[in-house]
Nucleic acid binder design. Structure first.
Lengths: 142, 142
DNA sequence: TATGGAGTATGAATACATTCTCAATTTAGA
DNA sequence: TCTAAATTGAGAATGTATTCATACTCCATA
């Protein structure tokens, strides 16, 4: 796992921000890569009996770090925050049914192109974006 | 204030969902209308010595209700959630600078039109949406 | 290769914002 | 007025962030 794209991204982010490579970060990234989609709680349970023990605070801190590095992306789903591995994944957005909660993914290059235009017009440089459509899915609108 | 657009929206939402008009909801909506932009804490402090006393839980519940009614919209800013009055406000989206935190509003009909197209293609009916662009503003990118 | 030291990271406990639980109260409609 | 159902406040619970003293990393120097 030490040579994965994710590791490269993390190392780059760490060194360019004066941050450090630690045992805990290695362990957490490995666990994250093995699961691809987790909550902090799940990671905590998985790594609970790990030697040395890894605290919940460190897990939260490291998950945020993974987001900052562009490796993970958080998604609020129910009461907990889920973290997805987005390396090797094309960017996509979400349609959320406000009745049944179903989440549908979609991608649309035209929208992204327009976003870029808007940004340029304001002298803004986009690094990432979030687009969520809320409404009723095919089934719930009956 | 009893005849404002906001009151009409709230009443419609309540009756169409089998919910009820209560003293607390009236008091909170009035306070919200007077401020236009608040956090739950601010409202709680403002209404603290109100008779009868209004609990923080009720304030949170009512603010969520205002969002459901289309009167307010929540925005996560720092550690707290802010609620804005969006009645009489054209829909707009946000560009957030990840360095200095500045939020710039913008609107773009073309993007909204494309969103509508995507939704139709999936049999989805949009009631609302959220689009946030993250990156560096004019000043921070230097 | 070994070491010193500045600054970062850690875990435990604590703080914080928000939501939930539940018994008692209030509302809307017949 | 009566009654079913929604709402309330207090406090507990939840998920996440922060604080602080200790431990570790990294890099420069030897």
């Amino acid at each position: 796992m030490k040579h994965s794209k994710e590791w490269a991204l993390l190392r780059t982010h760490l060194s360019s921000h004066g941050l450090k490579v630690t045992k805990q970060r290695e362990v957490i990234l490995d666990a994250f890569l093995a699961m691809e989609h987790v909550t902090a709680e799940q990671l905590y349970r998985t790594l609970g009996r790990h030697r040395p023990h890894i605290g919940l605070a460190t897990i939260y801190r490291t998950l945020n770090l993974l987001c900052d590095s562009g490796i993970a992306q958080e998604r609020h789903f129910g009461s907990q925050t889920h973290y997805d591995n987005v390396v090797n994944k094309r960017h996509h957005d979400h349609m959320i049914c406000t009745k049944c909660g179903t989440i549908t993914e979609f991608e649309n290059c035209d929208i992204e192109r327009l976003q870029e235009q808007v940004a340029v017009k304001h002298g803004f440089t986009i690094t990432t974006h979030k687009l969520e459509l809320y409404g009723l899915c095919r089934h719930c609108k009956r």
